[in-house]
């Protein structure tokens, strides 16, 4: 391990003094510093040694390359290449596992980091999908599906697969499920994660489920399975923005 003694810190000073104190001490002043934790700092070898066995076990598995990308794959609203890759990937694996659904919807914020150009290693998928979420299918009335799309429209778009819509002045219009116009009187099955199915991210519409099926399939594992599958046929993964969500307004990533 490299040990560098040069220390860099940004010292920020703010001094403040206060008046009354009830204790035996008077508060005179305060000073603030912000230390950047970076590679110029020395390392505590006792801490390193302590967690090294944990690290070895993880590293051996985490550094495996599962796919490659020539360009950075980022999330975006209304649509992003990462949104489409994740949504289509999960949908493909769900079909492979014979899970029945009409379209897939997951929350945008579940995609935590972009995929940088180059080899995609296992650890990156853990960073991308750190949560232990499982696939859940929710059967709901067409009118509730309509509300679900309004929910997505208010957010400016979410990752979806097997459906398309337009966002006009914050409203979802021209909603198509598997290429067909949404029928209010029909029931549809949405594949999502347990987080949304439980009403997370204020997606309370999922709580109106007519039927719910929980699958013992982790989103992260399903996504990795998809990438490995893609890697067998394509040297580079290259998801596209295909217009499944078109908005009159583009919302900046947070």
């Amino acid at each position: 391990m490299r040990l560098r003694q040069i220390k860099k810190f940004f010292i920020l000073l703010g001094v403040l003094a206060l008046s009354s104190c009830t204790g035996a001490y008077k508060y005179v002043s305060s000073k603030e510093r912000l230390y950047l934790i970076d590679r110029s700092l020395p390392l505590d070898s006792s801490v390193l040694n302590f967690y090294y066995p944990y690290k070895l076990k993880i590293d051996s598995q985490m550094n495996a390359v599962i796919a490659n990308t020539a360009t950075e794959i980022t999330r975006g609203r209304p649509e992003g290449r990462l949104n489409n890759l994740a949504a289509d990937g999960l949908a493909a694996i769900a079909k492979k596992h014979q899970i029945d659904f009409d379209f897939l919807h997951i929350n945008y914020k579940t995609l935590r980091v972009p995929l940088p150009p180059g080899p995609i290693r296992t650890y990156k998928i853990f960073e991308l999908m750190p949560f232990e979420n499982n696939l859940v299918s929710i059967k709901m009335k067409g009118s509730d599906v309509f509300d679900l799309f309004q929910y997505m429209a208010r957010l400016g778009g979410d990752p979806i697969s097997g459906a398309s819509f337009k966002i006009e002045e914050g409203r979802a219009t021209k909603i198509l499920i598997k290429g067909e116009t949404l029928d209010f009187d029909k029931a549809y099955t949405v594949l999502t994660n347990d987080y949304l199915a439980n009403g997370g991210d204020n997606a309370s519409v999922y709580l109106k489920a007519l039927e719910r099926k929980d699958y013992n399939v982790k989103l992260r594992n399903a996504f990795m399975e998809y990438l490995v599958q893609l890697n067998n046929t394509e040297s580079q993964i290259n998801p596209q923005i295909d217009g499944r969500i078109v908005s009159d307004k583009v919302i900046a990533d947070e």
Binding site: A17, S20, C21, A24, Y25, S30, E32, R33, L34, Y35
Partner: peptide, 20 residues
């Protein structure tokens, strides 16, 4: 990525001394 630090200074209370 950062560590925050604040230093607070207190005066030991002594008779007749004014609060700053």
């Amino acid at each position: 990525v950062n560590l925050g630090r604040l230093d607070f200074v207190f005066e030991r209370d002594r008779r007749g001394k004014k609060t700053y």
